[in-house]
Lab assay of single mutants.
Amino acid sequence: KLPPGWEKRMSRSSGRVYYFNHITNASQWERPSGNSSSG
């Protein structure tokens, strides 16, 4: 399961899957890690 705020999306241009955070408006190709504590 993804960390809070993150969701899986697909890029229309490349067709690749990326991850988008609707809370911080951040996007990245790598899967966000939800196990590590923020610090």
Rank of each mutant, 00 (worst) to 15 (best):
S38W: 08
R9C: 10
P3V: 02
R31S: 09
L2G: 01
M10I: 15
S11Y: 07
G5M: 04
W6L: 00
P4A: 09
V17R: 03
S13L: 10
G34F: 14
S33F: 09
R31M: 10
P4L: 08
R31E: 12
G5V: 02
Y18E: 04
G5F: 06
F20T: 03
S13M: 08
G15S: 05
G34R: 09
P32A: 01
S36Y: 06
W6H: 00
S36V: 13
W29I: 08
V17E: 14
E7Q: 07
E7D: 04
R31A: 10
L2K: 15
R31G: 03
N35P: 14
Y18K: 02
Q28S: 07
F20I: 05
E7P: 00
G34I: 13
K1M: 13
S33M: 12
V17L: 06
R9T: 02
R12P: 12
G34Q: 10
R12M: 10
S33T: 15
S33K: 09
H22K: 14
S38A: 12
V17N: 06
N35H: 11
L2N: 01
Y19A: 00
S14T: 14
S33G: 11
S38Q: 12
R31D: 11
S11G: 06
W6D: 00
E30Y: 06
R9E: 02
L2H: 02
M10H: 10
S37A: 13
H22I: 15
P32F: 01
R31F: 15
R16L: 11
P3N: 02
L2F: 03
S13E: 11
N21W: 00
F20M: 01
F20C: 06
N35T: 13
P3I: 02
S36E: 14
S14W: 04
M10Q: 10
S33L: 13
N35I: 12
E7M: 06
Y18S: 01
A26F: 10
E30A: 06
K8S: 07
W29P: 04
S11Q: 11
G34P: 11
N35F: 10
P4N: 08
N21T: 00
Y18M: 01
T24V: 03
S13Y: 09
Y19Q: 00
R16I: 08
K8H: 05
G5Q: 05
Q28L: 03
